[in-house]
């Protein structure tokens, strides 16, 4: 039976009630007493970036939340007044921020703020925090799966695709000016593209990877066919081969409750989970030829090459030097 018996001081729909003022305050640096030099062995790309570590709505004043970020155990507490404090269990320093209903932490020196999401400021798109799901898979594997079109008709059969509509039509992939990749012109017949869809239709998708462990998609909304629902997936790197997925929905109003949106998105992510946990090797291999991509896998190829180009080592098997090419 349900074991989430702890009580909680927040309403279920809490992502909405997070005030926008909080998003405007600058992030805080929490100084610790211990040196952090030992940690420099971790890939600076992820060490100096921001990662989600908890959702405000799941924090409980009666019980501190414990998690792990980049091998570092963290404790995240909320007090009765709603103030959240993230600490490293070893006393080391960290930077803390809160955006989109999520608590973000940077363990190194942040060279940029938490990713700015323009759609989060559109008034008719409430941010819905889906609920974190832990997965025994490397962060880059989780991102690559999110970009993948070919599995929709199988792993998400009846929702995001269906046999025999499994053909992946040609689409375009390009580099983003600020780094990252974008895939455009992706189309897929979907029997139930979202909770509000009452019939199947050809869904149009755009995918973006803006940071190594952040991806999002824009997809046609069944009611507002000229605007797009936006779904973000933030991956919290726990260890090199384990992660926590924090999906965030920025969907247009179509009568679906936040509860319905969450259940749908959780259903989808939990369908991917056993696939992710049965991919070998555990770390994403970046060398060309490690796997067998076809034209439908263009976005996967572009993502892997981009990771090689920026020199990511966390959660991947780097390509031999000659295979790594400039973006």
């Amino acid at each position: 039976m349900a074991r989430f018996a702890r009580t909680i001081a927040h309403t279920p729909g809490c992502p909405k009630k997070r005030n926008r003022a909080a998003a405007k305050t600058r992030w805080t640096l929490r100084r610790g007493g211990l040196a952090t030099a030992a940690m420099t062995a971790i890939d600076p790309i992820v060490w100096n970036d921001w990662h989600p570590v908890a959702a405000r709505c799941t924090l409980d004043p009666a019980r501190a939340h414990t998690t792990v970020l980049l091998n570092q155990p963290l404790t995240i507490a909320i007090d009765g007044a709603g103030t959240i404090t993230a600490r490293r269990d070893d006393g080391g320093a960290l930077h803390q921020d809160e955006r989109y209903g999520l608590v973000w932490v940077c363990l190194g020196t942040p060279d940029r703020p938490v990713l700015v999401i323009a759609e989060a400021d559109e008034p008719d798109r409430p941010a819905v925090v889906v609920g974190a799901v832990a997965v025994r898979a490397a962060g880059p594997r989780v991102i690559e799966n999110f970009l993948d079109l070919g599995h929709l008709g199988y792993v998400h059969a009846g929702y995001l695709g269906d046999d025999p509509h499994t053909r992946v039509l040609p689409y375009s992939v390009a580099a983003l000016p600020q780094g990252g990749i974008i895939a455009t012109g992706c189309r897929m017949y979907q029997p139930q593209a979202s909770p509000a869809a009452t019939e199947g239709f050809d869904v149009e998708y755009v995918y973006k990877v803006e940071r190594a462990l952040i991806t999002c998609l824009y997809k046609s909304n069944p009611l507002h066919r000229d605007r797009f629902d936006v779904i973000y997936l933030f991956v919290q790197p726990v260890t090199e081969t384990t992660s926590v997925a924090h999906p965030l929905l920025l969907c247009l109003p179509d009568g679906t409750t936040p509860q319905g949106l969450r259940a749908f998105q959780q259903t989808i992510f939990l369908q991917d989970k056993p696939i992710l946990e049965n991919q070998r090797p555990a770390r994403l291999p970046l060398a060309d030829g490690a796997d067998t991509p076809i034209a439908a896998d263009k976005s996967s190829v572009a993502y892997r090459r981009w990771l090689s180009a920026i020199g990511l080592t966390w959660g991947v098997i780097p390509a031999p030097a000659k295979a790594a090419r400039a973006a």
Binding site: A2, F4, A5, P12, A132, Q259, G260, R262, A263
Partner: peptide
């Protein structure tokens, strides 16, 4: 009738 147990805690409502 879906109940948002996680993360909504609707079963404690």
């Amino acid at each position: 009738v879906p109940v948002d147990v996680y993360p909504g805690h609707e079963h404690r409502s």
